[in-house]
Every structure is written in structure tokens, then in C-alpha cells.
């Protein structure tokens, strides 16, 4: 079964306002229901929701938070300008800071993934059907991301 591709293969991209993902739960859980009618099976969707919940509360997430937290240099970086810099990418030009940026980004991704705002929406409802993805721009940070999360995702599965 391929339900893990949602977590493992998540290609991070910035949140997009008003996407299908933002209203997915309304389309699936709200709207009129007529009891005598048949309803399409949503087995896959339910499983993936549970997956996301596990991510939120996992030790793995905590360790990522802690790592990012410990790397913050509050004494030196207490100015408000440093935070966007840390997360935004200009700091990544220096090799020393690149690792920091990556760490903090991965925390952000964990949050985003966990809360359902990540870029993995294509995979979520297509875990069984290989469908064409609509072309859409992938802004910032395409490369060098997913390899790190692959291993941890498997760990998450193991905790499940």
C-alpha cells in the first residue's frame, strides 16, 4: 500500500492561500448529507488524517523543535530582523548558517505538514491513483529537502 508516499514524498512548497487543501475538510465533512444515499469511500483519506496527527505529537517532531530551539542564538540574534533572515534564506549564503536555516525550515515544514498546510496535497487524495499533477510553480527550496525527511517519516510510521 502506498499511503506512506504522502509523508515520505512530501515536496515542500510555500502555503498557497485558498487552495483545495484549505477547504478539504469542508468538502469532505460538511455539506448536505442524505442518509439514504450512498457515500463514496474515504478510507484512504481517513488513514492519512491519522498519519498527520501522529506527526504532530511524535518524539521526532519534539526533537526537531528542540534542535531548532537550541540553535537559536538569542543573545546575538535577539533583534527582530534576525528571525526572518534565519527563515527567509538570505542567511543561507554563508555555509555556517545554512545548516541552521535547514533545521529551522524543517521545523516549519513539520508544523505545516502536521497542520495540513504543506505542499503535499496532491499526493494526499491520489495515493492510489497516479494522476497527472496540475502544473504549478514551486517557489523556493525545491532541492535537498526530502532526503532528510524520508528516514524520519519511516520512523513516524514505526511509531504508529
Amino acid at each position: 500500500m502506498t499511503t506512506t508516499t504522502y509523508v515520505d514524498g512530501a515536496a515542500p512548497c510555500p502555503p498557497r492561500a485558498g487552495t483545495l487543501y484549505d477547504v478539504l475538510e469542508l468538502i469532505l465533512d460538511r455539506g448536505m448529507v442524505i442518509d439514504v444515499f450512498v457515500r463514496v469511500s474515504l478510507v484512504g483519506i481517513e488513514i492519512l488524517k491519522i498519519d498527520a496527527r501522529i506527526v504532530v505529537a511524535s518524539v521526532d517532531t519534539y526533537l526537531r523543535f528542540a534542535e531548532a530551539c537550541n540553535r537559536l542564538d538569542l543573545e546575538r540574534d535577539s533583534g527582530s530582523t534576525t528571525v526572518p533572515e534565519l527563515l527567509g534564506g538570505s542567511a543561507a549564503r554563508s555555509m555556517g548558517k545554512r545548516k541552521v536555516r535547514k533545521t529551522v525550515e524543517s521545523v516549519g515544514d513539520t508544523v505545516r505538514k502536521a497542520v495540513g498546510a504543506g505542499g503535499s496535497d496532491d499526493d494526499e487524495y491520489e495515493e492510489e491513483e497516479a494522476e497527472e499533477r496540475p502544473a504549478r510553480p514551486k517557489k523556493r527550496r525545491a532541492p535537498a529537502r526530502s532526503s532528510g525527511s524520508g528516514g524520519t517519516s519511516r520512523r513516524r510510521k514505526a511509531e504508529a
Binding site: I27, L28, D29, R30, G31, M32, V33, I34, V36, F37, V38, R39, V40, L42
Partner: peptide, 9 residues
């Protein structure tokens, strides 16, 4: 709006 997936027999 109907919830997604409602099919009348």
C-alpha cells in the same frame, strides 16, 4: 452544497 461523494441510487 452536498458533501462530496453523495450518490443517489
Amino acid at each position: 452544497p452536498m458533501r462530496f461523494g453523495m450518490v443517489a441510487p
